[in-house]
Design a protein around this nucleic acid. Sequence first.
DNA 1: TGTACTGTAATAAAAAACATTACAATTAAT
DNA 2: ATTAATTGTAATGTTTTTTATTACAGTACA
Lengths: 134, 134
Amino acid sequence: MNGRFPIAMHIMTLLCASDEVLSSDYMAGSINVNPVLVRKELSNLIKHQLISSQQGKNGGYKLSKAGTAISLASIYEAVKPDAILGQAKNQPNPACPIGKQINTHLKDLDNEIEQTMLNKLGNTNLAEFCKKFD
Amino acid sequence: MNGRFPIAMHIMTLLCASDEVLSSDYMAGSINVNPVLVRKELSNLIKHQLISSQQGKNGGYKLSKAGTAISLASIYEAVKPDAILGQAKNQPNPACPIGKQINTHLKDLDNEIEQTMLNKLGNTNLAEFCKKFD
DNA sequence: TGTACTGTAATAAAAAACATTACAATTAAT
DNA sequence: ATTAATTGTAATGTTTTTTATTACAGTACA
């Protein structure tokens, strides 16, 4: 996998801990990645209605609702990959009885595991996560 | 993530469904990836004691124990990434109170989720998975 | 003694992730 | 009005990761 979930969590935690709107440049400075990458993820989080933005001077980003109302599952949903258990780029041999069916069965397994994970992540919210910081 | 789990599952399923030893070339043909990649994964699965090999002519690979005795969790363990929820390569800013602590808290969360996944995967074994194929 | 395998190293190619540059659009402050 | 700080996004370049390929030593069967 890539770094999208960690970065999304970092963004959301910063916003949860702040009273004021934060700029993408400020957040990029805390995360220590390129500001454009942060803005791309911010766009995505807006699309998923987890945050909102204010354009123009003194603009920035803030949570769209209280941290207690944002489950970690909803953050994960915003950045989740196609397959949590990984995805090979091969096309298994359709002439082989195993190769012919394996993708279907692996996808079923993947869906089950993803659901289990989401259930677990759904038990915690952003405000709870934020409390761990002192 | 990458394709290691799907490929490992494909290998293990082929071996579970076969009475005879299988060669890496045969398996690469079913999976449709390069044989060297298969042999690398086979090496890893041997290291994790899930399969055994026989060198020389008419050699090949077979399961080291019955499919009913191999949980999907043990297969996942053999190929699992450092972080199921992803890992950014950045070093968060230690001058920021959030940046300073976030990796610790994200790692804790990751461990919790991984454990949940492993529990779920531990409920099924390779033979059960194999039964889905007709 | 040849042939069909495993095992592994070294290198190359392809794909994905991340960084950088650039700039249009927006809005507050002066 | 004009300037400065900001969002939003496209285009391109660099780096890292993944996968493929080539090569060959070692092993065991026939």
